[in-house]
Design a binder for these strands. Sequence first.
DNA 1: CTTGACGCTACAAATAATGTAGCGTAATTG
DNA 2: CAATTACGCTACATTATTTGTAGCGTCAAG
Lengths: 109, 109
Amino acid sequence: MPVKNIDKARGSTTGRPIMVLLDMLGKRWTLRIMWELRDHPLTFRDLQKQCGDISPTTLNSRLHELRDLAIIDHGAGGYHYTPIGEELGAQMTALDSWSRKWSDQLGAD
Amino acid sequence: MPVKNIDKARGSTTGRPIMVLLDMLGKRWTLRIMWELRDHPLTFRDLQKQCGDISPTTLNSRLHELRDLAIIDHGAGGYHYTPIGEELGAQMTALDSWSRKWSDQLGAD
DNA sequence: CTTGACGCTACAAATAATGTAGCGTAATTG
DNA sequence: CAATTACGCTACATTATTTGTAGCGTCAAG
């Protein structure tokens, strides 16, 4: 078993892909890391800086978990999305758009 | 201050909408709750059942937080998306599609 | 007036995240 | 070659978050 076991994540006894995904995304810092990686690879230390307050322990855990799930990879240049991961990362843009609209609406109350 | 303060969430000192959002979505059970609500309203107890292992304490916290952020609301019939929240909830579908493709790819290794 | 569903709250115990310090390796610089 | 720098981490004690169980107060139906 080299890498990638999708079937035993936190709450997901079923192994249903969506559950595994929600589980991973629901961990602290996961989405933030994915956000920071959206445009370009970043090194471990870059990620620490960008994320401000993340502890190296947690960062390391998340990076391992994301690698195990084949969402990101690590190579020269730093951590970056895998091809399939890229497609998930693209959804960050949608979240960003939504959040602006949301903010506008709330501000306009 | 009736409801909705977007500006002081966990790590988000900036109050940038995307950061507030990522912060909220990154809490355990938030995405799962949103997933379960995607099609129809659910009562507190329904949500407990659907989510399997969530503790009432945590469920209650998440529901409050999501209400404060104007993503969900509570009325007759149970908890449900607000109009703007609905648009975020719609992204759950995209995550689901992605997760299937992902799972297929990994399975096909 | 009992039963059931509802939306919770209390609280001790378990689990996860934090912050600081610093290690080992490899590539650069003087 | 010695010193410096950036890299990817690990250790570990402290603090924050989540869990699980129990049960409360309200309301509507039978």
